[in-house]
């Protein structure tokens, strides 16, 4: 009898852990998508694009506005509405990404190291307050668009649930990242991007339009962030103008953890941060989940100074 109880307990604990794993992977996918944008920009021009988290927030707002707009004009067939909203948000967020680069970073290209960083912080403050002023400071709730899901197992009243939303998030992320990987590894655009990442000056000497490549990097990064914003909106159902900061810091942490400059590293880092956060909340305390994520970053950096998949930098002397 006691043994049986122990087994059920263990199964129950396992079920609980499985649920956390599902939640963690979902959250990690969102972080990973944002982290890719950080790591791409860092790889090419070596700057921390502080405004990237806010582009993610703008993407979430654009998704919300698109969904409301589509509902108002009577388009209620969910798959089409979602697809249209996603494309709209990605396109307009890409335009925001392009504008931010053009206005705040391009004039500072080749300038001193800290100038673009301050400009980026200024842009981040600007975007945050711009959305706060134009859309209001209140949180925006959205009713569940894709309710329900599959029950994987049930044990002692605890059900392991895989929601449609989580399935959709994982599938969309994998598809988007697949397209993105193809773009970077197999197309001429990707080749110029990688060339610029290796050596910006040399690439420009070889006739690559580096300004255009950098712009495209921002455009792609912003579009990916908008996809993340779209999924964040649907998954959590509430957004406000401040979500960009925390998500941005976490995603940047993910990029550093994965090895900054490495695209697979960004996704891996995102998944790790997502899992750490969810498991910590589930087993220890929700309040200190951010502390856990950041502390693990510090510890990881001490033992793995270049991140998990980062290239070791041998200093030339």
């Amino acid at each position: 009898m006691v043994a049986l109880r122990a087994i059920t307990n263990r199964v129950c604990a396992l079920a609980y852990a499985l649920q956390q794993l599902i939640n963690g992977v979902t959250l990690g996918m969102i972080y990973g998508l944002i982290a890719v944008g950080y790591t791409m920009v860092y790889g090419i021009i070596g700057m921390i694009n502080f405004a990237h988290g806010d582009i993610f927030m703008v993407g979430a707002f654009l998704s919300l506005i698109a969904l409301l707009g589509l509902a108002m004009i009577g388009l209620t067939w969910v798959p089409v509405a979602l697809a249209l909203a996603l494309i709209f948000a990605a396109a307009i967020a890409a335009l925001y990404g392009w504008t931010v680069e053009r206005v705040a970073y391009r004039p500072l290209r080749g300038s001193f190291r800290l100038a673009p960083l301050i400009s980026a912080i200024g842009m981040s403050i600007t975007l945050q307050n711009y959305v706060q002023v134009s859309q209001g400071a209140r949180v925006k709730p959205l009713a569940a668009v894709l309710p329900g899901g599959v029950q994987l197992m049930e044990q002692d009243g605890f059900t392991v649930q895989l929601s449609w939303m989580q399935i959709a998030i994982v599938i969309v992320t994998i598809v988007i990242l697949g397209i993105f990987t193809w773009l970077v590894t197999r197309t001429p655009l990707g080749r110029t991007m990688r060339a610029c990442e290796q050596d910006l000056k040399m690439a420009s000497l070889l006739g690559i339009d580096t300004d255009r490549t950098i712009s495209l990097t921002f455009v792609i990064g912003a579009a990916l962030a908008a996809v993340a914003g779209f999924m964040f909106l649907l998954y959590y159902g509430v957004i406000d103008f401040y979500i960009g900061f925390i998500a941005g810091v976490k995603a940047f942490t993910a990029a550093v953890l994965g090895g900054i400059g490495s695209l697979p590293g960004a996704v891996l880092g995102g998944l790790l941060i997502g899992l750490i956060e969810v498991f910590w909340s589930a087993y220890f305390s929700v309040e200190y989940k951010d502390v856990a994520a950041f502390s693990i970053l510090v510890v990881a950096l001490i033992f793995l100074p270049t991140g998990i998949l980062g290239r070791a930098e041998v200093e030339k002397v």
Partner: peptide
């Protein structure tokens, strides 16, 4: 002590994280 050996931008992110950690601890 642990982070000053790190490369520049890592220092930036670790100090940023530390600022947030302190704030979260103060709140909770």
């Amino acid at each position: 002590f642990p982070v000053l050996r790190l490369r520049g931008d890592y220092l930036a992110i670790v100090t940023l994280a530390f600022g947030e950690i302190i704030r979260v601890v103060l709140i909770n």
